[in-house]
Amino acid sequence: MTPFDGPAGAGAAVGVDLAKLRATVTVCRGCCCGTARKHPEVDHDEQLRRLTAAVGDIGQIRVVKGCLGQCERSNVMVVTPSTLGRLFGGRPIWLGRILDQELLTAVAEWINSAGPGLAPMPDVLRRVVFAPLGPIEPTATD
């Protein structure tokens, strides 16, 4: 059960913008994240399909086709709390080296549990958290 379970349209019936209740996963697919050049052993398209399917309507997936400037830690994902999650102290969490199914599943489970500020980070993700270096200005998004 998630915080989003309930009668269909319940949020809309009371004037709640359900998009504000969804955490976001930003997936870098720029210069080296998501490319076979750097990680030929990873099926990046399949990884994105699995994440999108696992998150469903609970969260949002944002694909950055530019570069987030954290190439030494590719594949990079940023888990951003929902508006409600921010009210409870959640902040964007940068994750690096998301290259296997265990880590991808943990990201999806965290989003399905409401994400930063509302649900604890899965322990397996703690080893891949990092603080970004330099200004972050993606050049293009999907």
Rank of each mutant, 00 (worst) to 15 (best):
R97I: 07
V124T: 13
G117M: 06
L18I: 04
V25A: 08
P7I: 15
S82M: 10
P122C: 07
V128D: 03
V76F: 11
L21Y: 06
G15D: 10
V76S: 07
T24E: 09
S74F: 04
I93A: 12
E102H: 13
V129Y: 03
G69W: 08
V55S: 01
P135C: 02
K20C: 02
M1E: 11
I93T: 15
K65T: 14
L48V: 15
G30V: 07
T139R: 09
T26G: 01
G30D: 05
P92I: 14
I61M: 10
H39P: 02
Q70E: 14
V63N: 01
E72H: 13
R50K: 15
A8K: 04
T26F: 01
V124N: 04
G115W: 02
L95I: 06
G90K: 06
A13L: 08
P40Y: 14
E72W: 12
Q47E: 08
T141F: 09
R62I: 07
S82P: 11
E41K: 13
F4I: 11
V129H: 06
I58W: 00
C71K: 11
G115E: 03
P122D: 07
A12L: 09
G90F: 05
A12S: 12
T80V: 14
Q60Y: 00
V78H: 01
A36K: 12
P81C: 08
P3C: 08
C28N: 02
A36C: 02
G134T: 11
N112I: 13
M77T: 03
P138V: 02
K20P: 00
E72K: 11
D45Q: 09
F4H: 12
A8Y: 00
N112V: 14
G59M: 05
L104P: 02
A19K: 06
H44I: 05
P122Q: 05
T83W: 11
V16D: 02
E46G: 15
H44Q: 05
P3R: 12
G85C: 05
G96V: 11
R73M: 13
D17P: 00
T2R: 14
F4A: 12
R50I: 09
A54D: 14
E41L: 06
C28D: 06
N112R: 15
V42E: 03
V124I: 15
A8E: 10
